[in-house]
């Protein structure tokens, strides 16, 4: 309801109720924004449980800090920034364990039936694996851009970058993905006629 109308006056009323300790207001806020924030978190973390936890943590913090919440822009802007910051913190903690090679190594499966699976292997799986191998910041920006509800400007804003940097990183990501996937694309994509 709230998300659909997104009227600042309503946001202000809701925030006032929240500040005064109205737990019902927290529920309303959660129901209105959970889906959207979960998708952003999933875009960044690429893990369902981690994304759910991140969104939970955002709302727990909002509740704990309810008295100090001061929103200068919009409620949406505030919430998505909180979600992105939370996810970045999760990523930082996760870093030592993450090895960008894991996924493609895992796909070089020497099992005898490997060839049987070639056709079942969807381009989507391969693309996702290749995205995993992008340098960290490039991957983050690219993922957020593929969550199609955020504009370049919004992504730039969320990450404290210039829109130009965001655009450049997306270009870099696509170029790199095309290199990595070249042998697959040659096989899986229909080849265009050489003359038109």
């Amino acid at each position: 309801m709230l998300a659909a109308m997104n009227i600042p006056a309503n946001d202000a009323i809701l925030l006032n109720r929240l500040r005064s300790g109205d737990e019902q207001a927290l529920d309303e806020l959660f129901v209105a924004w959970h889906g959207y924030l979960y998708k952003i978190a999933y875009a960044i973390l690429h893990d369902t449980d981690a994304a759910k936890d991140a969104v939970q943590d955002v709302f727990i913090r909002i509740w704990q800090k309810r008295a100090e919440i001061d929103i200068t822009s919009t409620l949406k802007g505030y919430l998505q920034r909180a979600a992105v910051n939370q996810c970045l913190m999760v990523l930082r903690r996760r870093k030592p364990a993450s090895d960008p090679d894991i996924i493609l190594v895992g796909m070089q499966d020497p099992a005898p039936s490997a060839s049987d699976r070639l056709q079942a292997e969807s381009l989507e799986t391969l693309v996702q694996a290749a995205v995993e191998q992008l340098p960290e910041q490039c991957r983050l920006i690219f993922r957020l851009s593929r969550f199609e509800e955020l504009s370049y400007n919004e992504i730039a804003d969320l990450l404290d970058l210039s829109p130009k940097t965001v655009e450049n990183q997306i270009g870099k990501a696509l170029k790199s993905l095309r290199r990595t996937l070249a042998p697959w694309l040659a096989i899986l994509l229909p080849v265009l006629p050489t003359t038109i």
């Binding site: 889906g35 998708k39 593929r146 199609e148 993905l177």
Partner: peptide, 18 residues
Amino acid sequence: ILNESRIKAPPADTQAEL
């Protein structure tokens, strides 16, 4: 690549999460 890299988050149950 753009088509296949679209983020498709598996659905999350808002009420359960609440």
